[in-house]
């Protein structure tokens, strides 16, 4: 399990670098490091389906980010400036709420079951009935396309709405000259 913790720490460090670095291209590369180490973590906790999706989505987002940055600007001008009063106030407020959240979550984490033992019984039912009832060997496909296909329909609708939103925002016709 030591490699899992290694990658978790690496993910956190890369995320901090991505927010704090001044060159935006370097920040995007750091964000890519976050995404790929999350993909490796998915492999380590035995979720290859998620790892495949994570890798391809990460590549796509990095390509889009790099294309945008190459056409606009490299430098993040907000980093390194002197903090104003409202900035310091919001940082303090954030720290207080984060501390409260950690105190509350610490108690509930102690009551969580061990890794690999889900709280809900429905998971073991899916594993038991997956192959005999649907005939699909990949249990993930059985769940998302047979037992819970309606959820997948909702997910597809979300993606459809996102595409409609982007195409409508970026359209040429109807734009005011």
């Amino acid at each position: 399990m030591i490699e899992l913790y290694l990658f978790l720490v690496f993910t956190i460090i890369a995320a901090i670098v991505a927010t704090e670095i001044k060159d935006l291209l370097a920040a995007v590369i750091s964000l890519g490091a976050v995404g790929f180490s999350v993909a490796i973590i998915f492999v380590l906790i035995q979720a290859p389906d998620l790892a495949i999706v994570q890798i391809v989505i990460e590549v796509l987002t990095i390509v889009i980010f790099v294309a945008v940055i190459l056409r606009t600007t490299h430098i993040d001008e907000t980093i390194g400036k002197k903090l104003s009063g409202t900035h310091i106030f919001s940082i303090v407020l954030y720290a207080v709420f984060a501390l409260l959240f950690l105190i509350v979550i610490f108690r509930s984490f102690q009551e969580m079951p061990d890794f690999g033992n889900p709280i809900m019984r429905v998971a073991s039912e899916y594993i038991r009935l997956g192959l005999p009832q649907t005939g699909g060997a990949n249990i993930v496909a059985d769940v998302i396309l047979d037992f819970r296909a309606l959820d997948t329909l909702g997910e597809a609708t979300v993606l459809f709405t996102a595409v409609i939103g982007v195409v409508a925002l970026m359209r040429k016709s109807g734009r005011k000259k």
């Binding site: 389906d49 999706v53 391809v56 590549v59 796509l60 699909g136 060997a137 990949n138 998302i144 396309l145």
Partner: peptide, 16 residues
């Protein structure tokens, strides 16, 4: 339905 992957991942690879 046999190995890890599926419609979502495959679709993104084709888009890639």
């Amino acid at each position: 339905h046999l190995t890890p992957g599926g419609g979502f991942a495959g679709g993104v690879i084709i888009a890639g």
